[in-house]
Structure formats: C-alpha cells, structure tokens
C-alpha cells in the first residue's frame, strides 16, 4: 500500500487532532524539575569533592548533561507510568494524565534527551562519565520503572540506586573513575531513600493501593514498614558521619552530621512508636519533610567545607 492510498483512507472531515497541545512548560514538567535540582546539587558536590581539576566550562557542561539525563529519565518514567499516574492524586496533574502531552511525544522527548545528554557528556567531558550516565538512565527506566516498581515492594530500595548515582557521575566527570569516597556519597543517598519514600508511602498508602503499586505499606503492612524505616535510619545515622570518619570531611561536618543523624533517628523512632490516628500521620509527614532537609544539609556541609578548604 502506498502512502497516497493510506492518505486517502483518512477521513478528512474529522481531522481534529488531540496531540500537540503541550506548552514549553509542560515539556519542562516532564523533566521533573524538583528531582532534577537535587540531582544537580548532589552531582555538583561530587564534582567539588573529587581530587583533581576540571575546567569550569567543562564542569558546567557535565552538570548540564547529568541534569538533562536525569530529566530524560523522568520523562521516560512518566511515559511508562501514565496509566498509574492517572489514578494517584499526587501524579494526576502530570502532563500526560492531564492530556497536555501524548505518550508518544513524551517517549520521543525522553529518548532524544537521553541520547543527547549521554553523547554530549561523553564527547565533551569523558566517556566513563557518559557511560555511567547511560547506565543510570537505563537503571531508572528499565530496572526501576519497567521492572521493579510494579513487581516488588523492594522497588524503591533497589531502584533508589539510580537516584544515588549522580554524585558518583559528578566525581567521574572530574577524575574519569570512581573511588571509595564517591561510593560513600552513593551509599548515603541509597540508604536514605527507603525511609524517605516509605514515610511518603505511609501517608499516601491509599494512592499506591488504588494504582496497584506494591509499595511496602501496601504489601507488608504498616507495622513492617515502620520497623524497616527504623532499621534503615539506624544504618543511615552513622553512614552520614562516615565522610568525616574516612577523612574526606572535616570535624564541623562530623559534629553537624551526627546531630542531624540523631534527629533523623528520633523522628524515625516517633514513626515507629506512634501508629494510630492523626499523630501517626503527622509523625510520618515530619520524617518525610526532615529527610529532604537532612540530605540537603549533609551535601551542603560537604560542599561548604570543600569550598572553605579550597580558599
């Protein structure tokens, strides 16, 4: 069948097309800008802590590529998850469920940016960092979004690795390899992810249940989730101090991270202890909010110390 014949089959009287309604802002929303900002920040800290030197222009290019790569992962995540995003109140206003961007448009956008960011990082900075970024996108889209998210309550535990890689990629952009220090930065975010997400899942449990996503509170119950939140928090508190113990952060960081870790642990204990009513809900919201502040502060302190040391 030729293209001309195919054209003739189209009913020209009803050619109203629902696509093409996405504004520039809708496409920016596909990149999950809030997640992207955390990725840029942690990658920047990884770059600043890395030994050696990178030209500032190449540093900006590396950060831009890591940010775009993370955004592309977000767009591909929204492409694949558009069916469950329609159900959950937290995600209903995303561009695809809101009918502003079609799934095909989001897919094309995500793939184009993925390839573009990886190739640009490889060509302009180094291919190890480029390959690492490609692996991170693969891990987030294929391993987490397409495989783990709908099949196991351990989804965000394993999938959390994708969100923990950016400081390692930032480090790799400077040094061309990875090291124990960058792995510790990875581990902090990796171990931080379960208590952070499960605190959210505890007060959004109904959403995940309705969408059929096997988050820990849905599958194992709230009691088991609270136990595991406390368990991961016990691991996280000393891990947060480990950059100082391993000698790549100063004593100010050591003291501050210990205090922050104790507060985290205290809030996780509250979530574990208070299990009924409005007080329980408030405890989970408090832990969720503080977990964002905690991670931001650890990396901000590492950054501040590296800047002060460099003066």
């Amino acid at each position: 069948m030729s293209l001309v014949e195919r054209q003739d089959l189209i009913d020209t009287e009803s050619l109203a097309w629902s696509g093409g309604m996405g504004s520039v802002g809708d496409y920016i929303a596909l990149l999950k800008p809030r997640v992207m900002s955390l990725v840029i920040f942690t990658a920047f800290v990884g770059m600043m802590l890395a030994p050696g030197h990178i030209h500032p222009v190449l540093g900006v290019v590396a950060l831009l590529c890591i940010a775009i790569g993370a955004g592309a992962s977000g767009a591909l995540n929204m492409w694949y998850d558009s069916d469950i995003d329609r159900i959950m109140s937290r995600t209903q206003k995303r561009p695809i469920p809101a009918g502003k961007v079609s799934r095909e448009e989001a897919f094309a956008f995500g793939i184009t940016l993925s390839i573009g960011s990886v190739v640009t990082l490889g060509l302009l900075v180094n291919w190890f960092a480029g390959a690492f970024l490609a692996f991170t996108i693969f891990f987030y889209v294929i391993v987490y979004t397409m495989w783990l998210k709908r099949s196991t309550p351990q989804n965000i535990v394993i999938g959390g690795a994708a969100g923990a890689f950016p400081p390692m990629i930032g480090w790799a952009a400077v040094t061309g390899n990875v090291s124990i220090e960058s792995f510790v930065l990875f581990l902090i975010i990796f171990i931080w992810t379960p208590p952070h997400f499960w605190a959210l899942a505890l007060f959004k449990c109904g959403d995940y249940k309705a969408a059929g996503v096997p988050m820990m509170p849905v599958v194992a119950g709230e009691t088991s989730t609270r136990n595991q939140i406390l368990g991961y928090s016990v691991l996280l508190a000393p891990l947060g101090v480990s950059p100082w113990m391993l000698g790549f952060a100063g004593s100010f960081y050591g003291v501050a991270s210990a205090v922050l870790g104790l507060v985290f642990l205290g809030l996780a204990f509250q979530v574990w202890r208070v299990r009924e009513g409005d007080a329980a809900r408030k405890a989970t919201i408090r832990l969720f909010s503080f977990s964002i502040f905690y991670l931001f502060m650890l990396f901000a302190l590492l950054l501040a110390e590296s800047l002060v040391m460099g003066l």
């Binding site: 054209q7 189209i10 020209t12 050619l15 109203a16 097309w17 093409g20 309604m21 996405g22 504004s23 520039v24 496409y27």
Partner: peptide, 21 residues
C-alpha cells in the same frame, strides 16, 4: 488546506512556542 491534519489556533500557537524553544 483541504487535506491533512488541521491544527486549532491554540495548537498552532503552542507549536510555534515549542519551535522557538
């Protein structure tokens, strides 16, 4: 003008903004 997909005014406006971006 007779055949093919016809964009609404809003679609054309948004396409222009995307093209500029």
């Amino acid at each position: 003008e007779e055949k093919g997909i016809k964009l609404t005014e809003e679609q054309a406006k948004r396409r222009r903004a995307r093209s500029v971006a």
